[in-house]
């Protein structure tokens, strides 16, 4: 079996909550937000792996740990077999530009005081990935044409505030792609864009997979765009993966009650269908990740709640070739 591009094993990331000096002296304890609490998954080469879930479930934190932006509390992240938190600094320097990120908000992710040329060429300049100024210029030119910022000469000298949202996102993508990365974390790359632009941006991502062999971790809460680009998907709830599998299978045959609720909430522009459809409404908000519920974390909101759900945490069950689910309903006792 080929080694996956990215291997995540039992990854945990807790953030300490600061409640002030007095609190910590009086109660002598630190609270943690368990943003990511023991997740594992593999991403194969040229695969688009979707991580979906509600706001605050730990999707983005996972993405950032995987890129080495946060140090994990526990667990491993392996990029092509190298544990990225254990290899030497110098070696990490050399491969760091192979892992890139596309951010959600193109208004925040570009320095307002840099020109487009400087923004896109920065990763090349910082890693000294060019031999001459000509080469630098040509590579920026080429990548700008690839993301369809044409004519490049006109865009190069502009500042971000002179561009539209879609153009900014293209600049951000160009910057991520310019170093020829193997792996890109795309954190809701189209959620801030007009619906009319989404498809063209998503197609760009697909195009780079074909042309450059890029592997993606696609983070989103929008299952419709996820299905458009994704190969496999994992559903996260309160820092844990509750269901994972082939994306079509997962959306057509959701096994976990939470996934079912998420999928039933996708709006379908067909009133006839909507009237017939049974929508699963979840009660309440997700609980705080500081003190997650005991047993199955979903049990307080679950419509199929059983006694055992509260007491014991379920294990993963393989329901159909690689489609795994973490729910007592599927565990035969």
């Amino acid at each position: 079996m080929e080694t996956p591009v990215l291997e995540v094993n039992n990854l945990k990331k807790y953030f300490a909550v600061s409640k002030g000096l007095l609190y910590s002296i009086l109660f002598k304890r630190v609270d943690y937000v368990k943003a990511v609490d023991g997740i594992s998954f593999d991403i194969k080469e040229k695969e688009i792996f979707v991580l979906a879930g509600e706001t605050g479930c730990g999707k983005t934190t996972t993405g950032k740990v995987v890129l080495g932006l946060y140090k994990p509390t526990d667990g491993q992240v392996k990029y092509k077999g190298f544990d990225i938190f254990r290899i030497r600094r110098r070696q990490w320097r050399r491969i760091r530009h192979k892992l890139q990120m596309i951010y959600q908000d193109p208004y925040e992710s570009l320095n307002p005081r840099q020109r487009v040329f400087d923004i896109i060429s920065e990763p090349l300049r910082l890693n000294k990935l060019y031999k001459s100024k000509d080469e630098l210029y040509d590579r920026v030119m080429k990548v700008m044409e690839d993301v369809k910022l044409v004519p490049p000469e006109d865009f190069m000298i502009r500042y971000p505030h002179e561009l539209s949202g879609g153009q900014r996102q293209r600049v951000a993508i160009a910057r991520a792609i310019v170093t020829n990365p193997d792996f890109i974390v795309a954190d809701e790359p189209v959620s801030m864009l007009d619906a009319s632009l989404r498809a063209s941006i998503l197609n760009l991502l697909l195009e780079f997979r074909e042309k450059l062999g890029v592997t993606y971790l696609y983070i989103t809460h929008d299952l419709a765009t996820a299905r458009y680009v994704g190969d496999r998907m994992a559903i996260m709830y309160l820092g844990q993966i509750v269901e994972m599998g082939n994306i079509d299978d997962l959306i057509e045959n959701p096994q976990h009650p939470y996934t079912q609720a998420l999928i039933s909430s996708i709006p379908v522009p067909d009133p006839e269908y909507t009237r017939r459809k049974r929508r699963i409404r979840l009660e309440g908000e997700p609980p705080t990740p500081i003190n997650p519920p005991s047993g199955c974390r979903f049990h307080p909101r679950c419509p199929y709640r059983m006694d055992i759900c509260e007491k014991e945490e379920p294990t993963y069950v393989d329901v159909k070739d690689g489609h795994i689910v973490k729910c007592w309903l599927h565990i035969k006792r």
Binding site: L67, L69, R93, R96, H97, L99, Q100, M101, Y103, D105, E108, S109, L110, N111, P112, R113, E122, P123, L126, N127, A172, R175, T179
Partner: peptide, 26 residues
């Protein structure tokens, strides 16, 4: 806390580089 600082780190920027090229100019 702006994401372009984090993006610079991803691009391989050192702290000194970020201080001068991203923070100072702003």
């Amino acid at each position: 806390t702006r994401t372009f600082i984090e993006a610079a780190k991803l691009a391989g920027a050192t702290d000194t580089y970020i201080l001068f090229r991203h923070i100072l100019v702003n």
